[in-house]
Design a protein around this nucleic acid. Sequence first.
DNA 1: GTAGGGTTAG
Length: 542
Amino acid sequence: MWLSKSLRFSLFPTHTKLPPFLPILTSHFCASSRSQTCLHDEAISRFNSLLHMRHVPPIFEFGKILGLLVKMKRYTTAVSLIKQMEFKGILCNLANLSLLMNCFFHLDQLAFAFSVFAKTLKRGYHPDVITLTTLIRGLCDKGEVEKALILHDKIVTLGFRLDEFAYATLMNGLCKIGETKAAIKLFRMIEGRSRVTYNIIIDGLFKDKYTKEAYDLYSEMVVNGISPDVVTYNTLVYGFCLVNQLEEAFGFINEMLSNSIMPNVYTYNILIDALCKQGKLREAKNVLGVMVKAYVKPNHFSFNALMNGYCLVNQVKNAKQLFNAMTQMRVSPNVRSYTIMINGLIKNDRMDEAINLFQEIQQKNMVPDTVTYTTLIDGFCKYGRITYVWDLIDDMHNRNQQPNTITYNCLLDALCKSYNLDKAFELYNTMMENGIQPNKYTWNILLDGMCKGGKLEKAQEIFKDLLIKGYPLDVCSYNTMINGLCKKGFLDEALTLWSKMEDNGCLPNVITFKIMSRALFEKDEIDKAEAFLCEMVSRGLL
DNA sequence: GTAGGGTTAG
């Protein structure tokens, strides 16, 4: 009962202005360790001294430093040191070449990465399992999982055996693009499944909301004598939070504690985020307090989750306070922090402050990403300041932040709501030409636009078509159509759709009931309208 | 191998 106990008292009185956990945080975490910059400079000077020794030191001495730099994510430095090394006539070994390839992948220079691989072969090295795993991981990380799979098939055909690290990498890549089934196929194919491979598949299943299957696999893992570690538990906690089963999630927290596995920053952040999304801000804040007391330093994720939570319950003031406080904690806001604040400010009618923050991003030499732009674009759309929108879209292109489905959805919604249906469809065509796939929001926006823009029949046609194709329409799609039908006086058809939706596995919500009862009241069908309201109450929808 | 931000219906 670790959390419930800690929740009984509040660590944070509500009357103070500054986040009260700040003093605790600063005293805990400000004891300085040697900075990354310092280590980085030391590595460079050590490398240089190796380079200038009268007798060339063994190559692995260079490799050690290069490995350290990669661990510190100083890829550019590693590349430049390897260049200097080769310039001096000290040739890379296979390990150095794999490391170099890895650096180029991280630097998004795929062509260079492949040329290093070509160089490896040209120099007569036989790529080992590490070289191949580096290639597989590079491809997966850059969204080329398909190519990684082809590479895997080739490697196997050539009679080479990959190890469990390589398979874990490949399975993780597959899960990340939603190909959990393919990952499971590999998982069942290989022998000697490790904890890491179990963790990957369990996580993939949870993210696809196959909660039971994920849990079953966890049980299988335990039966096979593999004990869960902190990552396994985090995966379980996250998986149950994802389907709003927080009780189960906390059950696993208790289980991990009784197995003497300490929660880490991921564990706490998962809990903070889940609590925030349920609007339980007080509890979320308490988790942060518990975390700090356990000497686990909050990071971007922790602060962003909490800020987002405050915005969700319309407490932008508290979010802003946290935003200002994180800098003092040496966790400077990142682009996501800014986006959360911009969104919160816009939703609270503080457009000008949102614009100021947007400008602050650029002043700090950060680049707003597609989500930041989309947030601001949606704000301008809803405030009817359309001229700014096109400037922002130009800006996006100039900064190589491409609009995606959601960006288009915001624009489509703006066009529909201002009765520019033709322009909306024009934009829809542009979207398709640019290879951007519509999602269910797109259809709901367009259906609503058609219903309200005098194209009810067209909307019905498209709606039917989507139904036939088995497109995952949701309660919002049904509500849109039912409302459209009601508004044009087709009450019978609305009722038919109403009775169909539940058969199609879509439960009506409060909005459905409100639409129906209002339409019935307007037609003086008072009894029926009241029956709907009663039904709504009896279903617990209030 | 595990965590975060933006879009729709009354």
